[in-house]
Design a protein around this nucleic acid. Structure first.
Lengths: 143, 143
DNA sequence: GATATAATTGATAATGAATTTCATTTGCAG
DNA sequence: CTGCAAATGAAATTCATTATCAATTATATC
């Protein structure tokens, strides 16, 4: 399995996009943080380690990183979108606790299959899907 | 089946909320429009029929109407949230065309069942779920 | 019906996430 | 090394949504 940075470098090359120190820093911090990060959280982490990088640059970099297939935007209906790793991570859905905001990553291949069937039934060509279950998590329920 | 306006009136009564001419107009227009409406689209329709109603009032009314269980917010990932009818409409999910923006309402009871099982497996108490399939619709594909 | 009072409204300001602008810097092909 | 387009940072802008606040209005009580 090719590592994420290499994937990014070949993407950059293919697209004729230039290399940039700042974008590399942002990618590095993003890849090293195993958590769904909002743009502002990521900005916080990045500028702590590499002061001077601007807010807009973080947004711009994440857009490119998503386009390269290394990240994906997720939306937990709280008004901020977050980024999650995509490289080396299987597709999954989320169960989000409406009490504490924590989430669980889940996958059920039977559901995936039924979703594809559903699309086919309507002659719809699926590109991606998002499934979110909101509710109360184990921890919050038992306290 | 009780009609939507009556449901709203009993909700209002129970909550000690006052009646208001403006909110009634907004509810009427919302109920008579069989389409997912954004706040600004709804504002457009409302103020055409009943000039003088403010933008903020539309937002406030829709919040109350959602709380009464007559509407639900849906989000097609385009930065605007829309409202759909909930009263007298079965739960359903959406397939959204990334080309033309149109959507299809779909439901598969087997998926619903598997979602509940999935939640149970993690001792998670589901409150609601949202499933969206993004892709290219029949029309857009064949032209 | 008159009156008190608290919810509701409309206009506008404020907020906050995300994007654009633009002058400056920088990567890189030739 | 040079030229030029891409990338950056700071600040301004956009756009959806929410908060503020004085004025209005619904409703319970007299």
């Amino acid at each position: 399995m090719e590592n994420a940075r290499d994937v990014f470098i070949s993407y950059i090359k293919n697209k004729g996009i230039r290399q940039s120190r700042q974008r590399d820093c942002i990618l590095e911090v993003f890849l090293n943080t195993e958590k769904h990060l909002s743009a502002s959280e990521l900005y916080g982490l990045v500028s702590r380690k590499y002061p001077g990088i601007g807010y807009a640059t973080v947004y711009r970099a994440m857009k490119t990183i998503c386009a390269a297939g290394l990240a994906e935007e997720v939306d937990f209906d709280d008004g901020v979108s977050r980024f999650e790793h995509k490289h080396g991570h299987e597709h999954h859905d989320h169960m989000i606790c409406t009490e504490c905001g924590r989430y669980i990553e889940v996958i059920d291949l039977r559901i995936e299959k039924l979703q594809d069937e559903l699309a086919k039934k309507y002659d719809f060509t699926p590109q991606k899907h998002k499934m979110k279950i909101f509710g109360i998590c184990k921890n919050c329920k038992h306290k």
